[in-house]
């Protein structure tokens, strides 16, 4: 594995993302064809990111560990820490662009496509880790439970683990 390229792929993914899991499409696109990560590792690290404390965006730390051990997770950490530093730069130029509607349109177009691609990739992840009545039923139930916004995510995941063992 080429660490410099590995780092660049993580940095690039984070640069074209908004929000914590927005780097998923780009990472998936770059790592899977190179056989540096599997669909299963993506699914697993997303799950660990949901469980562990802090921003869910830290799922890439987990992906780094699963694909390249501790060096991988440290490279992922540096890669996700750099783009948010742009906040200071953006804050300085913000007054000049905030009144321009196309600046907002740019961000909205980016956000919409991240979400659209995100949903498609998640569906592909489900297909590659085993698509059957049970997994679809669990996914649909988890979706419905998340949509109520009253049940904490860890509770849903715990229930799903129990369902996985007993069903």
């Amino acid at each position: 594995m080429h660490y410099l390229l590995y780092f660049w792929l993580f940095l690039k993914a984070s640069l074209v993302s908004t929000g914590g899991s927005g780097n998923l499409p780009s990472l998936h696109d770059d790592l899977v064809p190179r056989h540096w990560a599997t669909n299963r590792e993506f699914a697993e690290s997303l799950t660990i990111g949901q469980i562990s404390p802090g921003p869910t965006g830290l799922w890439v730390i987990s992906l780094g560990y699963l694909t390249a051990g501790v060096p991988g997770s440290l490279l992922a950490l540096i890669a996700i820490s750099i783009p948010p530093l742009l906040a200071i730069v953006v804050q300085r130029i913000y007054r000049r662009i905030e009144s321009h509607p196309s600046a907002e349109g740019f961000i909205q177009g980016l956000a919409l496509s991240v979400c659209g691609i995100f949903i498609v990739i998640l569906t592909l992840l489900l297909r590659s880790t085993g698509l059957n009545v049970k997994s679809v039923a669990i996914a649909a139930t988890a979706f419905a439970l998340a949509a109520t916004k009253r049940i904490p995510i860890p509770a849903i995941l715990t229930a799903a683990a129990i369902a996985g063992i007993f069903l």
Partner: peptide
């Protein structure tokens, strides 16, 4: 169980 739930 957990992976499909994460997807959902």
């Amino acid at each position: 169980g957990v992976i499909p739930a994460t997807v959902g």
